[in-house]
Nucleic acid binder design. Sequence first.
DNA 1: TACGTGGAGTTTTGAATTCA
DNA 2: TGAATTCAAAACTCCACGTA
Length: 279
Amino acid sequence: MPSVHKGGHIIPSIIARDHILKAIREIDELGVPDRRKSTNYCLIHEQRHYPPKYVISIAARYAIGTELGHHDFYGGKGSGCANQFLRNRGFQIAECQCGGLISIEMPEAASELEGFREELSRGSCCCSDLLVGFTFEDIVEAEPPSEKGVYVVRIRKRSERLPEAMISEAKQLMARVGWKMLEKKVMSRIKRLRGISQCPVIYIGGAGTQPGSRNTLKGRYSEFSGRHTAMYPVWILLYFGWELEFGWKATNDPANEEAELKRKYRKIHQERLPALVEQ
DNA sequence: TACGTGGAGTTTTGAATTCA
DNA sequence: TGAATTCAAAACTCCACGTA
């Protein structure tokens, strides 16, 4: 088999740019196993980072039908090694310790990324005026009443982990579970984390909005531990060290209060709803 | 009586199809 | 080819019932 390296550690030269692009697309879908993350270099494609050796391993499967193992070829800088192989096919390689699969899609430059981090950590937004009269408690130990009302989930403190990185790690976890149907459903919710902005309010909902309903704030809150539409992204945020609050306001007209709250929120946020609400 | 859970009703969304 | 329509699936919410 033709190769670009000798001595038993070979990269099949039949691997073309198209095979590498297919590998990148697969990694976008399935993520990178922890043991295959890069240590010192990243392949940078469309402003996302990928581990060079893992990309080549996957690309080999598309080219020759067999995935290469971690020790089947060299990484590093030398001639015939993974980095040079990828550069020869038109890809950018940079020194980086992120491990791969880190997106910097929102801000384009590194300085902007830092600015985005700062903006996220501030979490300031004028929509806090909408929540006058709400009671807030830590989401993991909130005790809302058994009454009708409107409720919100709000970010109290952000961690260093950005939404895109959390989505990537969640995707890897789901890929390891190996249950496509479950992965599709869970990830469809978790991807809503991309909608998180500087605004701390990430969900608005109502309890007892329909006539005759016996739903309560307490009941809706309990669903965050088992079947609420926003529970997966909430779990992910908590897992990565974000601190969240559950806030509520009891009312006899939750439907109108919820609609009015969302209307005002949209007005402030260019017609968008909170990140975890279906847009 | 309060709570948890399975299942059903209603609304929304998006893909597929039809038609001009 | 693009707009309009249809329909299935998903999302969201509520109801009913068993249990503590």
